[in-house]
Write a protein that binds this DNA or RNA. Sequence first.
DNA 1: ATGAAAGCGCTAACAC
DNA 2: GTGTTAGCGCTTTCAT
Lengths: 336, 336
Amino acid sequence: MSKITIQQIADLAGVNKATVSRVINRSANISEKTREKVEAIMKEHNYVPNSIARGLAFNKTFTVGFYSDYTDKRAYANPFFYKVLQGIEEIVYNNDHMFLMMSDHVNKKSSSTFENVVSQHRVDGLIIPNTLLTEQNYDLLIKHNMPYVVTGENMLPKEGVPWVDIDNVQAGQVLTEHLIELGCRNIMIYAGGEAVARDKFLADRLKGYTEMMKRNQLDISVIEHADVLKTLNLAKKSEKSERTGITGTRPDALICCTHEQLFEILDWERGNPMLSELALATFDNFPMSKYMTHPVHFVDIDLEMMGKQAAQMLFSLMNKETDVPKSISIHTRIGN
Amino acid sequence: MSKITIQQIADLAGVNKATVSRVINRSANISEKTREKVEAIMKEHNYVPNSIARGLAFNKTFTVGFYSDYTDKRAYANPFFYKVLQGIEEIVYNNDHMFLMMSDHVNKKSSSTFENVVSQHRVDGLIIPNTLLTEQNYDLLIKHNMPYVVTGENMLPKEGVPWVDIDNVQAGQVLTEHLIELGCRNIMIYAGGEAVARDKFLADRLKGYTEMMKRNQLDISVIEHADVLKTLNLAKKSEKSERTGITGTRPDALICCTHEQLFEILDWERGNPMLSELALATFDNFPMSKYMTHPVHFVDIDLEMMGKQAAQMLFSLMNKETDVPKSISIHTRIGN
DNA sequence: ATGAAAGCGCTAACAC
DNA sequence: GTGTTAGCGCTTTCAT
């Protein structure tokens, strides 16, 4: 049932299936009369061209892929990551394509989903997070001539990798500026060490903070992973003993570069209510803020926009448009 | 490049492409010698059969669809909903299928993604949340003979709709039992009114609560939407004035049937610290619990299992297995 | 056990 | 403007 083919429509309309194909594809050289007749028959029978067969003939799939990483807490496990998907899907559907999700997974035959999708040409193009763009995956994409766009700034030492990301430098600036406007003067940032060297987005957020602090002639205070709690205790002590400690000034704000860091602080804070005078701030949307013991300032990141831009860029590449920007940075603003 | 076809492999191996097809499909009637030769050539050239062409011949797509609803806060926007996806994908990939996501969306041509996917046979089967299984969608699935499984108990007045859901009655029991074990005796539940009549899962949770309370010979106290805050104030007053109010006993626990209800209470609670003696409880995972002013008890719902079961069931249906259960209810346990 | 050829549903030359 | 025909890459009779 409902297995109606182009041939049957053609027979019903008393024309050749090529003619039907022409009206489907809005080809020129069709008389108004036959077009209308064929269209009427198609509508009457709820005929929908089989996109698999269409794909085989066109050598296209009308499908866009998205490669996701369940283990990337910064992305997929983030409650609001689905916003990115929403943005992508909107664009994908408006371009009459389908949306194929694939997560990092290796099946019995030791072939990864990603590899299969790319080598079988199951999609016409795909969006891939920077964390998953390994040298190997990159090579695969190039080898199969598969259009792609990276979400998150490209970290691979390759030229011409198209990416879309949040402008993390600007985010760092905005957040710092917000705290300054709130009256904070001794703003610390929890970032540094190897993490900053490894993750560009951390370095960028730090950079934004640093720039804004300098612009306001305030002292920069970066604390590193292992030392953060000690540092805070020290600062507290130093205030108690009337400036006899190492740190002369008492911090009044702390920027956490990731939610993980924020939670670390929050965990510690529960046992140390004295921390409550410290203004906490973080990146990424943090709508739970109002329910917390301690309000948290944050920059609102427009993930939906990020998804839209990535998809838009991908379609531009798939359509071989010229003047496609190599990368896009998205600005942020203070949340709530 | 990399556009290697079955014909080329055949040529390379000096056999007919039908022979290659036979080794691909593990068909019998193949000499060990030629099988090995062909397999070697395939491996050497990283040959992967084009699944589009394969699909056309088989009239299959090797793809499973998932219809999601961005507007359903209970599901998609739930931070932990991705667990369901993870479960589904695991099964899907292990069965060498792909995973097509579609959200509720209508494009310019006023055709919905769902409609397109089903009528074009873009997937071999699909998983659909009960909130999206409308009469119209149901008819479409039946008309196109498309295998499907519903997540969440089927609400449509149709026979034989296969579904997988959390056992909400059992969840209500478990949560209530937990509070009782904690020493609570006057446990209220925020549920009732039209919402319960509309949503089966609410009714089931209420039922579980009711049963467990009766089993322990405790008084049942159901508060309805609009009255909840008043009721709580009243109870508080009644305690203050030494049992002169309407409610003779002071509630010591409150079960919220949804996160929305919980947040409503939490919002109110911020301005009413007197509520802090009340044990709060809710359904669905609530990992933010430890960071809240007020700890929240909850039942841990194994969403990944739900996804796995749904996908498993779908494959059973697609394979036309006999003895496929009509529905599956998944038990829960207290979280953290 | 293997080859030849038809066909899955559609598109795209090429004729007329 | 419309019909004919040859593919797209693979599976599956039907021969041999």
